[in-house]
Simulated scan of single mutants.
Amino acid sequence: MCSFYRGTTESILTSCITVWYGGCTASCRRTLQRIVRAAEKIVGAPLPSLQDIYNTRLSRKALSIAGDSTHPTHCLFSLLPSGRRMRSLKARTSRLKDSFVHQAVRMLNSLPALTPLLSLPSAPTNSGH
């Protein structure tokens, strides 16, 4: 049942979650989480929340982009001269502040050891830039 949920319902709910989840309203997030809770009752096993899935995928995608110099948005993930934090972009609207790049930079800046993570050699991938 868990495999079926992950293959059908979760894949639909989390399709491109790094793009749309930041811009969702609290009401929309609660509604989507209700679907996950209903699936938990049917499956009979605990399932990850949409927030957890979003955080995991956001961090994975942000580290992938920051480490791949050939990625088109790599230039938006630049380190400050200190080398300890990423440069935050200016945003006047909450819609822009909630977008993927801004959320990803905030998440990367919250990591305790950012520099070692970005210095790891990574090969460019062809996975959905």
Rank of each mutant, 00 (worst) to 15 (best):
L80R: 15
M86G: 01
R95W: 09
R60S: 07
P81W: 08
C75T: 10
R92M: 07
L80P: 01
V19S: 13
K97T: 03
K97H: 06
A123T: 14
R57V: 01
K41T: 09
P112I: 03
G23S: 13
P124N: 08
D98G: 09
T56Y: 05
D68W: 04
S3K: 13
R60T: 03
S64C: 07
L80I: 07
L47E: 05
S15Y: 15
R84L: 12
W20V: 08
V105M: 02
L118R: 01
I65E: 03
M86T: 02
S11L: 14
T8P: 04
S88D: 10
G7D: 13
V43Q: 09
L117V: 02
A113Q: 11
Q51V: 08
Q51E: 15
R95E: 10
A104Q: 02
L50K: 04
C24F: 13
T9K: 03
A45V: 11
S99Y: 02
N109R: 05
R85D: 03
S78H: 09
N55F: 05
P124V: 08
A38Y: 10
T56D: 11
I65T: 04
L118C: 04
P46W: 00
S49R: 06
L79R: 05
T25E: 13
G22I: 08
R57E: 06
C75F: 12
L58D: 00
E40C: 14
T18A: 00
G7M: 12
I35R: 07
F4W: 14
S11I: 03
T93W: 07
R106H: 12
A26W: 06
R92N: 11
R57Y: 00
H102T: 04
R95A: 12
H102I: 02
S64A: 13
T25S: 15
P124S: 15
G7Q: 13
H71S: 05
T18K: 05
P48L: 08
A38D: 15
R37C: 08
R92D: 12
F100T: 00
V43Y: 07
N109F: 08
V43D: 01
G83M: 07
K61N: 03
M86Q: 04
R92P: 02
A26F: 05
S69V: 11
G128W: 08
W20G: 01
I53H: 03
T18D: 03
T25D: 12
P46F: 00
C75W: 03
Q51K: 11
H102L: 10
D52F: 04
Q103L: 15
R37P: 00
I42E: 10
G83S: 05
G23M: 11
L76I: 01
R34K: 12
T70A: 06
